[in-house]
Write a protein that binds this DNA or RNA. Structure first.
Lengths: 199, 199
DNA sequence: AACAAAATTGAACGGCGTTCATTATTTTCT
DNA sequence: AGAAAATAATGAACGCCGTTCAATTTTGTT
């Protein structure tokens, strides 16, 4: 790689680092292009030499979070491959734990209002699909007679349901569950659902 | 009421109407104080004579939406008081129908980033609590042995789960369910859950 | 060293919510 | 009814935002 490309890549990485740090400490709402330029020691305009706009930069920071969640779910699924129901409950709780302990980056993932006309780059979509696969695996074990297409749908249903519970419980402005009750309720929901689905 | 108070109330109502209309047509993201002033034929500054800030105005518009959802859920719960499971499924589907057919106002309800320092007025909170009561009623019938406190928690769990499914399915940027599959999946989830809970 | 190409810069732009000195209106008092 | 006081309405101006682009500096080539 040429020197020029290397410096460009370095600046991109530094900016993503800075964005990640600022999102973690002050939240996506308080992210400012000028602050990021200060953080990495470049000019305001330089940001727009290496990113189309601030949204693309945010997307890269969010991708880091998506990868972290994937790691957390990979860990949660490990060691219980023979107990798929425990696996699903563990995944749900791991998702909540992450959201609870990294609320600001996690919220940034869903709060980010990407411009309406553009569409998301594929690597963000793929990052989300990868999360679903952690669910599909134990689910297929629990429902051996189900069509893969149905497993696909139920995985999305379960993820969305768990996500909703986590989201509203971490949101002060909505009547979600009290945080302390979330793990229990997640376990209840997942177990109850699967008893029903198995029939 | 004095003439002065009347005119103030009229301007407030007009602004809420305008905000509602603009949210419905262009979405919360494209709401502009200057546009609202034009819509109702007042000056920009007048908005701030009758509302603390734009967020309070949005909150009033959102309250209208909350009341509409309450109406929809009241209708859905009517006529099936003797079949509580059907009632719960109907409530879930009614919530999805509303969100699907009034996506922009419905999104505004959850996308609105209220300033962090202030806290929500109580009437918004009460509006949300009222929605939950539609769920608690059939739920208590289905789980006659459950403590009211547990029914309370499970109602929030179910609402959050359904909300999550609806939210992600209507969001182009996330891997939610395809819209056509949502009613089926909602029914599956609610029925499966309650079979599990009943045991 | 001289030149061309490319990257960097930050002042300036347009748009936003909000403010406040000024103006216009309504109410009160004689 | 008219003058004075209180109240409401106004919109230019402010500070902050993301973004742009002409001018400048740095890098690469001959």
């Amino acid at each position: 790689m040429s020197k020029a490309k290397e410096r460009k890549a370095k600046l991109q990485a530094d900016l993503i680092d800075a964005a990640e740090a600022r999102i973690a400490s002050h939240g996506l709402v308080n992210l400012r292009a000028r602050d990021l330029a200060n953080d990495v020691g470049c000019s305001l305009g330089s940001i727009y030499n290496v990113f189309d706009d601030i949204h693309m930069l945010i997307l890269h920071a969010n991708m880091r979070t998506l990868v972290r969640i994937d790691k957390v779910m990979t860990d949660a699924a490990g060691g219980v491959e023979d107990k798929p129901l425990d696996g699903l409950v563990g995944l749900a709780c791991a998702y909540f734990d992450f959201a609870d302990s990294h609320t600001k980056p996690w919220r940034a993932l869903f709060d980010h209002a990407f411009p309406e006309n553009h569409d998301l780059p594929d690597w963000i979509y793929q990052g989300q699909v990868q999360l679903l696969q952690h669910i599909e695996q134990p689910l297929q074990q629990l429902l051996p007679d189900a069509q893969p297409e149905d497993v696909h749908l139920i995985a999305r249903t379960l993820f969305s349901a768990v996500h909703g519970i986590v989201e509203l419980s971490l949101d002060d402005r909505t009547v979600g569950l009290p945080k302390e009750t979330v793990p229990d309720q997640l376990k209840l929901l997942v177990c109850a659902c699967l008893e029903g689905y198995e029939k």
